[in-house]
Amino acid sequence: MRSLMVSPPWGLDNIDLVEAPTPEPGPGEVRVRMKAVSLNFRDLLIANGRHVRGALSVQPIIPFGDGCGIVDAVGDDVTRVALGDRVIPTIIPRWLAGPATPERIGAAVGMNLPGLGREYAVISQEALVKAPEFLTDAEAACLACAGLTAWNALFDGPNLLPGDVALLQGTGGVSMFALQFAKAAGFETIVTSSSDEKLERARAYGADHLINYRNDANWSAAARSLTGGRGPDFILDMGAPGTFEESLRAVRMNGFISVVGMLGAGSELNPATLLASAARVKAVAVGSRETFEAMCRAISYHRIRPVISEVLPWTEARRALESLESRLYFGKIVLEF
């Protein structure tokens, strides 16, 4: 089979297409013929030899953790899935249910476990979720990271009610999932972006209010103005430089901020800003298999389709990551096999 591989000294120029043995499933395992993978900012970090935990300790590595495929071989004692099922591997295979713990989230696909950028992958049956039937392969490949992160950010902790206000930063994959989930749940939405064109596209997906932060760097005042001075009940923070401080200034007192990204180094946080907001803050680490399955039920019920910006052949991974690095995309970038 063919597989992508990224190696030291890292960087997009060090992504290669190599030949590798086709794996065989053991007891409790299945072999998945990959159909599509989608890109996330984590993949760009990993291709450059680092992640949220610092420098990668595993090298070289098969990239990408977000994908969809077809079960084409099963080992002994497999009962959760069957031949021909269309499945989505979980990014954190040991996180089946409950809160995140070091033991559950210590290993992640495409980081310190082999990723999905290959024609065949052998995966434990416990780390698979059946794909919603109405989605295409490319759409189903967007759920495990961006979709689940957005779901967990909105619904695990904030305790929001219909009519509450959710402010969502940006128009990338996580943000567009969050916008669609928020509208399905009956929330009023504010979307921020540096592009008027992207903001208008977000309006088509249900954004009630739009803020161009390039025109108004202190967008917290605009967010408070849109909410009658109260502030949004919830903010999805993407971790770009300075955004967390603005989120703290914008959010209503005792409101909720979910931090889901690390798009750039921010400034030093003044603790007084955090104390003044009395905000509850959560760092979101994707989610468990149990949460993933709950999200898929909601996606199927509401017929929510991921927003896809671009679809490329999987062998053009370098070009796709360059598109991701440009930040000109809207929604998700997908590679098809």
Rank of each mutant, 00 (worst) to 15 (best):
D208H: 14
I62L: 03
N112D: 15
R86Q: 08
L148M: 11
P93M: 04
S225N: 14
V87I: 09
F292G: 05
L45Y: 13
G157N: 04
V6G: 01
E29F: 09
G26V: 01
T149P: 10
R214C: 01
S323E: 14
A144Q: 11
K198L: 12
R42G: 10
A138F: 09
R31C: 10
G11K: 08
L12T: 07
V37I: 15
A20T: 15
L328S: 15
S194T: 15
L12R: 06
G163E: 09
G28N: 10
W314P: 00
N159S: 15
A153Q: 07
M111R: 12
G115W: 03
E24H: 14
A82D: 14
A141G: 05
L312T: 06
D156H: 13
F337A: 14
C142K: 04
V30I: 11
T243S: 15
S323P: 00
P99G: 05
R80G: 03
G206P: 06
S258G: 12
E290W: 10
G170L: 02
A276G: 13
Q180I: 05
P89D: 04
V311I: 15
C296M: 13
G65N: 10
S3C: 10
D164Q: 06
A279M: 09
G49V: 06
I333S: 01
G84R: 12
V165S: 08
P21H: 06
G110N: 05
D13M: 05
A223Y: 05
G172L: 00
R53I: 01
A276P: 01
A265K: 15
D164Y: 04
R104N: 11
W10H: 02
T101N: 06
L226D: 01
R42P: 11
G49H: 02
S277R: 02
R50P: 06
I15G: 05
E19I: 06
P25L: 03
R50G: 13
N159P: 07
G255K: 01
Q180K: 02
D72S: 07
T189H: 04
S225L: 12
W219G: 04
E197T: 14
S57D: 14
D16C: 10
M176G: 00
Y301S: 14
G67F: 00
L168T: 03
P162E: 07
